[in-house]
Nucleic acid binder design. Structure first.
Lengths: 230, 230
DNA sequence: ATCTGTAACTTAACAGTGTTAACTTAACGC
DNA sequence: GCGTTAAGTTAACACTGTTAAGTTACAGAT
């Protein structure tokens, strides 16, 4: 009957409510600092109700992450019509760093917390290989174009390897700065300087060309305090 | 009296016992998976006894980390008599990656878990700026030599910036591989390939020279499984 | 030899955690 | 109206980090 449809919709609605509350809390406080009871209270259900919609806390965070990936992919999506793939690559790097430093808890969730990864076929939110949704795929296709146009030196002709190298470098700065920006032992240079240097170094390393020059936006407040020291 | 000395020694001994048990457990299982009760049981004390020697769990892990830093610095120490600073730099990068992938939980503790950093003057284990104990200082001094010998291109003449860039890239691969080596979505290249490529790219980016070539040792068992896929 | 103080440790408890089994309630198709 | 099932709740278990209060053993003083 039609009522069955309606109940399915209602269930989906509750599920979405949980997901949204969890996402907010996780992003705000980080994984460990959020309890199932807090999520439950936020949506005015009992904690156990969550277990009707999600297997466990891990499952809940996994679903949140999958949704967050879409945000990153969407940010990349805005850059697709930049014609020069090398320029696009650098802008993607900047976009990635910005995404990380603006939403550090998001980022930590996605790329620094080792959760048991879902098998690809089980994930219904992101369609792997679909460039409109999968951020890695977007990076990969941009690099593919760089290679096709003969912009990379001959040691970086493997698109997979090149993608992973670029990802490593960009993730490296993002996560290191995130974890240790407040370490008083390190005389950190302003984050824009390091970010730009890392991106330039990556581009130079891959191409041998001089890299394109842009400005970088500001990261989250929590990471900004000591950015000017040293 | 002499007995007072003895009691101080005994206290230090218990402290060391706790530290050693904690270090083992943390490295084996990671921070969150270790409880104070587990540490206590391992040394046959009650959980509360630990609080007599350490302020809280955070303090305990901080002390462990400080000791672990020395291991890394010591690994770097073995490379000091390599004369060519660029060669030494690459070997340091390899050493760093090896350190990370061999002891992933150590590494996570040191560089991926954001603990409230101790003020430099409060730390009695590592003497900051002393090249024999401080890993960052060793990196910095090597880079200083590279610059002094005119090996770096003119855009990387700031030793602090260059250090932070190198650290970013090397940390990037180490931590990314650590967090996502088992992600079936990413067709990972063998880790030695990526590591080498990242190191080469860094050297090329900084110098413009062709980088020196070496082999990389194997990482911890837990990270080795899927290294050959792709 | 006895008393005192304190260092080192234990017992018991608190408030919180993720998770599960058993129970309730409301709505549905028949 | 009746039985079934979906959606949630209550109560509990076995944990967690941490603290306050109590114990014990022993150094030094009388």
């Amino acid at each position: 009957m039609a009522s069955e449809e309606r109940r399915k919709r209602e269930k989906q609605q509750v599920r979405k409510k949980i997901l949204e509350a969890a996402r907010q809390l996780f992003v705000e406080r980080g994984y460990d600092a959020v309890s199932m009871r807090q999520v439950a209270q936020k949506i005015e259900y009992t904690p156990t109700a969550i277990y009707f919609h999600f297997k466990d806390k891990q499952d809940l965070i996994n679903q949140c992450c999958a949704e967050e990936f879409l945000h990153l992919a969407k940010a990349f999506q805005h850059l697709v019509d930049i014609k020069d793939p090398v320029v696009r690559l650098k802008k993607m790097g900047m976009q990635y760093i910005e995404f990380g430093l603006t939403n550090p808890n998001h980022y930590r969730l996605l790329f620094m917390t080792p959760h048991p990864h879902q098998a690809p076929e089980k994930n219904k939110i992101i369609r792997r290989g679909d460039a409109s949704e999968d951020a890695y795929e977007i990076l990969r296709s941009t690099i593919l174009q760089c290679i096709a146009q003969g912009r990379f030196s001959k040691r970086y002709q493997d698109p997979e390897l090149a993608s992973q190298v670029v990802w490593s470098c960009v993730h490296g700065f993002t996560s290191l700065y995130m974890a240790r920006a407040h370490d008083p032992w390190i005389p950190w240079r302003p984050f824009e300087e390091i970010a730009n240097a890392v991106l330039d170094l990556t581009i130079v390393g891959l191409t041998g060309e001089l890299p394109p020059q842009f400005a970088l936006p500001a990261p989250a407040k929590s990471l900004r305090k000591k950015a000017k020291r040293g």
